[in-house]
Amino acid sequence: MKTINNELRDKIIFAAQLVSISLIWLLVIGIIFWISNLIYLSVDLKDSPGISIGISLVAIPVFITLASILTYVFVGFHREKKKHLNTDSGN
């Protein structure tokens, strides 16, 4: 009984972690959408689009990198954990 509970709890926590990671990606994608909308606006209104494109060239990669690092860490930890568990069961 208790083991099932534990398993369930682990699953819920893992799901929550997944959700949080995807939320971060959502944020990043949102920001990218927002910025491209603004670029579209500035092009449409002929309102010095160069500046907005320049800013976005810097901003977007930064957000993507940040999200990638988080994902990298998350994935890295969990791959290791699986291995760890596998070796545990092997023992």
Binding site: I35, S42, D47, I55, V62
Partner: peptide, 17 residues
């Protein structure tokens, strides 16, 4: 309706980052 050309939005972006 934002203008990314405005330094105020540069701020918004950079502070968020």
């Amino acid at each position: 309706a934002g203008r990314l050309q405005s330094p105020l939005l540069w701020d918004v972006t950079s502070i968020t980052a």
